[in-house]
Design a protein around this nucleic acid. Structure first.
Lengths: 351, 351
DNA sequence: TTGTACGCGTTATCAG
DNA sequence: CTGATAACGCGTACAA
């Protein structure tokens, strides 16, 4: 018994339940022909048939089921994106870039937000793997190298963003922290600040924080004759300790102007708040420059100086990196370092 | 010829290529049995078989293919989320809520960010439909009622967030704008401000902006003996016009204290910037309160008063709403209005 | 150039 | 309680 009954068009199947067979019936051809049209773009089809199939598809509003396609091809055209915290402006910016690049390349993004919960890293990878994503873009907390190993062991390509994880041999796209720190610290020195404090959220194993801290220490070591500087890790929520760190910075500096280099926007904000509590004027009493340049940076106090990250590029580059891997390119792991941009505002003007 | 060759465990198939058949072989049962265990939780299985299957699944690290499941069941366990702009703190906050709620319910979120591009609305719905999402949560630009119609016609449930679209008869979860405006405006009056200006991004057809503007006008009308107020639409990027609007507000007020009610965080920020340009002190020279209460609100100028939206709840409620629909609940369209919270800071203190 | 037939991994129906 | 088997919608050898 060959093909099923040809239903009249008036049946008005919802577009979601349309199958390739419906299109074939409508066009008076076989499933295979429609499939070929869909996949090889009518290359091996007679003009007549091609036109009829095209018309049928448009008339019916057909679109193939990714599930069936995925099942058959063993590919899902899904990319898993894990972000540390969607509330964080950097994460969001990357998300934007990734999402757009994926769309352009015909992939869909499956998002998993960790909400800064380290416990979730593994679950994120698992969960996304269960959905058969073809690869991962990871902006994780880096706590759980095992999670990454999971992904690698599944044989799925991984691109890291902003943060290395363990010593995994995978692609990485990130800011050129080394240079960025030098520029920022250099700017502080030029502006006349002499005692510097690098403040970060707990560094733990997060590579970008670590790199920034080390680059800062290197800078200080190189300029030991003109400036001094140390590193402080601000615990989440402990504002008293932060206030005290700032006070200590100033006490230890004598008459020398003091400044803070903040490791990200959250810290910038907290330092600004702390300065406000202490009654210090940003710029005059305390220099402040921070990584990330969210929209509000210009409006906090006298304007927050910042190191602006090329977030859209980071997202785009990471995505393209991953897609190359998906297409089978066999290259050694790459490290793509993108330059930041120094944005100077009132918080680093002593005048 | 019955079942395929039983492969030794050492073959170490990657978890992604494991099939239910592999589990069945390992446990010495049939596919059907494994499937039953997976779906009915071993209810109709002998204790012995149940244990063996469980062990096999764990040993192999098997997880079923959502594609095959989707194909068979005609369901994808995917939810489409369309947001107007991931850079907007409200969108992100909702995204957070939705994502978490979906995860808890065993759904995955497929995200489409419009990036404020009205042209994309239709494509978003189409694109997500093509992936066979089971339903939509829409925080759109509302320009394109056709897009919504598309979704509705596909027979997929839709839940709107924050904004109505056209006069569509679908569920809506949003802030209680009416009450929120009254509280905010009331607060401004209590604080002593007498000439008010409601500033919004171009209202167009965006219902929440419209509601807020109308509620504001209603408030002014009710308190016409004590306050006056008008509405201003700030075009994107036209800061000059915004400055001029503020100057005009003050000119028209004589000695009366003036204040702005901003329709969202972006506007709050722009008004704060404008005040800075004009050399006005927030609070003293210009009262300011705005919808949305992002983390930085407390740190801009003297602190920005705000109407904090229960964004996590909005996301959660919207998701649950949608999932109910997915489970077949047949109710008339609901409108869930959640209360906001007034947060008063320096920008509305005249002292 | 076009059609037939099979299999991708699951679930569901029907026997046993 | 369990096993064989037929779909689900699609892509692709293979045949015509």
């Amino acid at each position: 018994m060959p093909r099923p009954v040809i239903r009249p068009v008036s049946d008005q199947k919802p577009a979601e339940k349309l199958t390739i067979q419906d299109v074939a019936d409508y066009a008076g051809v076989s499933k295979a022909t429609v499939s070929r049209y869909l996949n090889r773009g009518g290359e091996q089809l007679s003009a007549d048939v091609e036109a009829r199939v095209a018309a049928a598809i448009r008339a019916l509003g057909y679109s193939p089921s990714p599930m069936a396609q995925g099942l058959k091809r063993g590919k899902s055209r899904l990319i898993g994106l894990v972000v540390a915290d969607v509330s964080n402006s950097f994460s969001v910016a990357v998300l934007r870039g990734v999402e757009k690049a994926c769309r352009d390349a015909g992939y869909m993004v499956m998002l998993f937000n960790l909400g800064n919960d380290e416990q979730l890293e593994r679950e994120a990878i698992r969960s996304l793997s269960a959905y058969r994503v073809e690869g991962f873009i990871l902006h994780t907390l880096g706590h759980d190298a095992g999670a990454l190993a999971d992904a690698a062991q599944l044989g799925k390509p991984v691109v890291l963003v902003d943060r290395k994880v363990g010593d995994a041999e995978v692609d990485l796209v990130a800011l050129d922290n080394q240079t960025a720190v030098q520029e920022a610290a250099g700017h502080l020195v030029e502006a006349g600040y002499r005692r510097l404090l690098f403040i970060s959220e707990p560094i733990k194993a997060i590579s970008s924080r670590n790199e920034r801290a080390r680059a800062f220490q290197a800078f200080v070591a190189e300029h030991v004759d003109t400036v001094g500087g140390t590193v402080f890790e601000a615990q989440r929520g402990d504002d008293d300790a932060l206030d005290e760190a700032l006070r200590a910075l100033r006490r230890g500096a004598g008459q020398a102007p003091v400044a803070v280099l903040a490791a990200n926007a959250v810290i910038s904000l907290r330092v600004a708040a702390s300065a406000a509590r202490l009654g210090w004027q940003l710029g005059a009493d305390l220099g402040l420059i921070g990584f990330d340049d969210p929209e509000w940076a210009a409006l906090v106090g006298p304007g927050l100086s910042a190191i602006s990250q090329p977030t859209d590029d980071i997202g785009r580059v990471a995505t393209n990196c991953l897609i190359e891997r998906l297409q089978g390119t066999q290259l050694p792991p790459r490290r793509v370092l993108l330059p930041g941009t120094l944005v100077t505002r009132g918080s680093t003007r002593r005048a």
